[in-house]
Structure formats: C-alpha cells, structure tokens
C-alpha cells in the first residue's frame, strides 16, 4: 500500500476576489463610457450662393415665423398657437405641395424652432426647412 494515497489530495483553491475586482473595474469602465442615446441629426443644408438667384416660387413656399419663445407662430401676419393641431393639419392640407420654411427672429431658441418643425412633420408636411432660420440677412 503506498503511503501517499492515504493522504487526501487537497484542491488548490484559487481566490476569486482578485477576479471580481478586475471584473468590477471593467464593468464600471464600460458603464461609464457607454452611451445608449445616439444623437439624431437634422439636416440644415446651406444654400450655395448661386442658388439664391432662383428661389422657389412664392406660392410654393409657406413661411412660418417665430418671434419669441411664446409658443406662437406667425403666418402672413396672423399668430397661431403651436399646440393648435387642427390648424396645422389644415395648413398642411391647404398647401399640399408646398415647402414649409421656418424662420425665427432673434431670441428664439433652438428648442422652440424644433418644436415648430416637429408640429409640421406630425401634421404630414413633406418638406420642412429650418435652414432659413440660420441664414443671416447680410450674407453675400
């Protein structure tokens, strides 16, 4: 009988603590550096200067102007509320093939501008342009 068999073989225990330390650090790193909300983009193509000589025909373009951040939009000198869904629907139906151009006066912030563009899109407008709001009057 070999003597060494009588002694039970002890499993060498590897401590799990360092492993968990490393995994926790990795976990923290990935949690803090990950972003799950990719930004969406709205195109605001800039007109090349030569295009400015041939603008759209007057009746093809509906210009909506924001004057302040008061949720009111001005069309042809009359103001409407941004929450007036039925008016937006009517406007879009009345100008089915028109492009909608959003204009803004000084002081209007970006969120208000996007709200107006959203309302138009929701009402079914096909072409909404926000680029006009950013074009300066003194551009050559």
């Amino acid at each position: 009988m070999p003597l060494n068999l009588s002694q039970p073989k002890r499993k060498t225990a590897i401590s799990l603590t360092p492993l968990i330390d490393v995994v926790f650090i990795l976990l923290l790193f990935f949690m803090l550096t990950s972003s799950f909300v990719p930004w969406r983009t709205v195109d605001a193509p800039l007109a090349v200067p030569s295009d400015k000589t041939a603008p759209l025909k007057e009746n093809d373009l509906v210009v909506l102007t924001l004057k302040q951040n008061d949720q009111m939009v001005w069309v042809d000198g009359v103001s409407y509320s941004l929450s007036d869904t039925s008016w937006f629907k009517k406007l879009v139906i009345d100008h089915e093939n028109s492009a909608f151009s959003v204009n803004a006066e000084n002081g209007v912030n970006l969120q208000t501008l996007m709200n107006l563009a959203d309302r138009l899109k929701e009402s079914g407008a096909k072409t909404v342009s926000i680029a006009n709001a950013f074009s300066s009057k003194d551009d050559k």
Binding site: T41, D43, A44, L46, A47, P49, F134, S135
Partner: peptide
C-alpha cells in the same frame, strides 16, 4: 452658419435627441 457657408461647405446637420 455664415462662417461654415463662407468656407464653402454645405452639408451641415444639427444634433437632436429623440
């Protein structure tokens, strides 16, 4: 926007969140 236009670029996008 004027500066970007002056440098001859036309493809500009605004970032929004959903």
């Amino acid at each position: 926007f004027s500066e970007i236009r002056a440098s001859g670029l036309t493809k500009v996008s605004l970032a929004t969140q959903l």
